[in-house]
Amino acid sequence: MLRYFLSRLLTFLPTFFGVTLISFAFIRVLPGDPIIVMAGERGLSEARYNELVKQYGFDEPVLQQYIDYLAGVLHGDLGASFVTKKPVWDEFFSLFPATLELSICAMIFAVALGLPAGVIAAVNRGKLADRVFMSSALVGYSMPIFWWALLMIIFFSGKLGWTPVSGRISLQYFFDTPTGFMLIDSALSGQKGAFGSAVRHLILPAIVLGTIPLAVIARQTRSAMLEVLGEDYIRTARAKGLTPARINGLHALRNALIPVITVIGLSVGTLLAGAILTETIFSWPGIGKWMVDSIYRRDYPVVQGGLLLIATMVMVVNLSVDVLYGLINPKIRRR
């Protein structure tokens, strides 16, 4: 197992350095002088320009610049935002809980509906339930989620007036956020209605973000279940006279879960990072919206740092999934 883990780590490290190289290159391959581009219409005095060139180290040889950058990254120094002047690292971690909370809720939604839907579809293969669930899954899988979000807003916020359109909680509530998770903090605050407000803000973005993982999980569960249901030990279980519920639940689902868990794990990585569209539409103050806003504002140090942090996070999650997979499934380890 240790060997397997080390071999995974061995491919992780070069990839990580490659990612630092890309985020390093990003600011330097921009057409034109990056400092003038960032300053945009605000303009710059010559003194300030020279100061910035020095600050970013653009007057040094490229190799030296990369070494300095890498040293900074390994010490947790990702530079500071051009607009707010705050360190990128601090901004990232003050916004990250919002994205994490949204992603967890989206994943709960996706698993809670996708897993049973896949199982029901597989058990009733070819019947009405299978067709309905799998057609819906294909529609969900093909959905342009930015449009899906707008439709939800039109219906639930516009027509029914049930949910607010943006943000994490109504402005009337104000309390400390020790955990950064609005659901927990609002419940802890003890203010009447705060928790309900947080839930109403969260529900639409979570459904929208969870839609594609839901479709993927439902399809994956169905095909994994179908494969397992064809195995001999299932026939044996049937022959022994076990009830269908016991066969499907205990024997089949357990083994079908292995590929499903992998899919869930891999989509956690993309969820955490890929909330770009959902967060932008619902003005959810997480890292997806932060990245998009920084691109609009040409706040390139933030884009650079954010790219690196997000890619590293995706890589760490994928590595953990790989290692976990090796733990669950010994066949993988021996390869």
């Binding site: 491919t11 990839t15 490659g18 990612v19 890309i22 990003f26 993309t270 990072a273 890929g274 770009i276 569209l277 990245m291 998009v292 691109i295 884009v303 790219l307 997000i310 890619a311 590293t312 995706v314 890589m315």
Partner: peptide, 15 residues
């Protein structure tokens, strides 16, 4: 290829 795949596709395209 791993390096390219480490970035979420929409984010990389955006950048």
């Amino acid at each position: 290829m791993d390096i390219i795949l480490a970035f979420p596709s929409l984010l990389l395209a955006l950048v």
